[in-house]
Amino acid sequence: MQNDEPDSVSAALRRRLHGAIAEAGGWLGFDRFMELALYAPGLGYYSRAARQFGHGPGSGSDFVTAPELSPLFGRALARQLRQALEVARATELVEFGAGSGALAAQLLEALGDAVTRYTIVDLSGTLRERQRERLAAHAGKVRWLDRWPEAIEGVVVGNEVLDAMPVQLLHFDGEEWAERGVAVDGERFVFADRPTPLRPPVAGFAVPGTVTEIHRQAEAFVATLARHLVRGAVFLIDYGFPEAEYYHPQRHGGTLMCHRAHRADADPLADVGDKDITAHVNFTGIALAGQQAGLDVLGYTTQAHFLINCGLLELLQGADARTVANAQKLLTEHEMGELFKVIGFGRGIELPEPLGFARGDRTHTL
C-alpha cells in the first residue's frame, strides 16, 4: 500500500499501545488492542490519512468494498430502502461507517427526493472530510454526527461496519478456555492467555488449540441501535455466518483477518496501524441482540439473493462488459455473493414482504 504518512505515525501508535499494555498491568484484551489499532485518534488505521478504499493495489488502497466495485450495488440496495422508507412514512436515511462516501453518493442519486436528510455517523474525522468532498453535490441533505442520533425515524444502513468492530479472542487448550490478549516481549507484541469465565455461544464444538471470536461490541451496537430506532428499518451487510457455521469444529482457527494492499494475512500484531483488522460476523448473535432489544427480524439472506431480488440483473441490461464483470463479483459464490450476507430489522412498521428477502431468505438458519 502506498503510504504518504511519516513512519512517526506508526511509531506513535506503537508507543500508545505499549503504554496501554503497561497501564493494564502487562496484558491488554485483544478487543481493546484492536480498538486502538483501528481507531486511536490520529493514529489508528481508520483515523490516519492513508487511503483504505479502492479498486486495486494500483490505487494505493488496501481493499475494495461493494459500492467501490460497482455503482449498481447502491442502485439495487436503494430499491429496498425506498420500500422501507415508504412503509415507515419517513424521508431520512442514516448510514453508519460511510467509508469513502461511495454508497452515500449512490443512494442519494438513486433515491432523489425520497430522502430529505442523509445522516452519516462516523468516528473518523479523516473519513468525514473525504465524504464531504465526495458528497459536495448533496451538501444540503447530508449531515455528520460522531455520536448516536437521539431518535431515528427512518431507515438505517451499514455496509461492512460490523466486521470492523473489536472482538474478544478465546483460546481452548483442550481442557479450559482462556481469553487471548496482547503482551509485550521486548519491542514486539505477542499473544498471551489468561483464565476467563467467557465462553463461545456454542458448547462442545472446540478441538484443542481452537481460537475463536466473540462479538460483544457488535451485539451491543445492535442493541443500542434498537433503543434509538423509534420507527423504521435497518439493513446491515457484511461477511459472516450463522452461529452453527461460525462455531464449527473445522473453523478452529477463527476468522480474524488483516488486509493490506489487497492482500490478506492473519497476523494482527504485525504492522499495527498499517492494515485493516477484521473478523467475520456471527449473524445469529446479531439477530438475537436485535430481537432481545425489541426489533423484528425482517429477513436474512446472501448478498447475491438480496441484490437479485432488488433488481440488479435488470439494472445490468445493456451494460458494457466491464460493468457486467464488476457486478458479477457482487453475485458469484467465490467472490462476494455467498460470503456476504444481509440482515434486516424493523420496528413500528408493517413490512410483510421485504423486497430484498423475497426469495432465498435464510432466517431459519440463524
Rank of each mutant, 00 (worst) to 15 (best):
D4L: 13
D4H: 12
D7G: 11
L13S: 03
R14V: 08
I21K: 03
A24K: 08
G26V: 15
G29W: 07
G29K: 07
D31F: 04
R32I: 04
R32E: 11
R32D: 04
L36V: 10
L38S: 02
Y39T: 14
Y39N: 12
R48L: 06
A50K: 09
G54A: 08
G54T: 12
G54C: 08
G56K: 09
S61N: 10
D62Y: 06
D62Q: 03
R75E: 14
A78L: 07
A90G: 00
E92Y: 14
V94T: 15
G97A: 08
A98R: 10
S100W: 00
S100E: 00
G101Q: 13
L103Y: 01
A105V: 08
A105G: 03
Q106H: 07
L108V: 08
G112V: 08
G112T: 08
G112A: 07
D113N: 05
A114V: 12
V115T: 01
V115R: 00
T116Q: 14
D122E: 15
S124A: 10
S124P: 12
R128I: 13
R130M: 09
Q131T: 09
R134S: 09
R147L: 10
W148G: 02
A151C: 06
A151M: 06
V155G: 00
V155K: 01
V157R: 03
A164L: 09
L169I: 09
H171S: 05
F172D: 01
G174L: 01
G174A: 02
V182T: 00
V184H: 01
D185L: 13
G186T: 14
E187F: 11
E187A: 13
R188I: 08
D193C: 14
P197Y: 07
P197E: 10
A206G: 00
P208Y: 10
E213F: 10
H215M: 10
R216D: 07
R216S: 08
A218F: 06
E219L: 15
A220D: 11
F221A: 10
T224F: 05
L225S: 03
A226C: 02
A226L: 02
A226W: 02
G232H: 00
L236K: 03
Y239Q: 09
Y239V: 11
F241Y: 15
P249E: 04
Q250L: 13
R251I: 02
R251V: 02
H252A: 08
G254L: 05
L256V: 03
H262S: 03
R263L: 06
R263F: 09
P268N: 02
L269W: 15
D271T: 11
A279V: 05
N282P: 04
I286K: 04
L288A: 13
A289P: 01
Q291C: 13
Q291R: 15
L298T: 02
G299N: 12
Y300F: 13
T301V: 07
H305N: 15
F306Q: 11
I308T: 13
G311I: 13
L315R: 00
L316I: 11
Q317W: 07
D320H: 08
A321M: 06
T323K: 07
V324H: 07
V324T: 06
N326I: 08
N326G: 05
N326F: 05
L330Q: 09
T332D: 14
T332K: 13
T332F: 09
H334V: 06
H334P: 07
K341D: 00
G344M: 12
G344N: 14
G348N: 10
G348W: 04
E350A: 10
P354G: 04
P354M: 03
A358R: 15
R359I: 01
R362P: 00
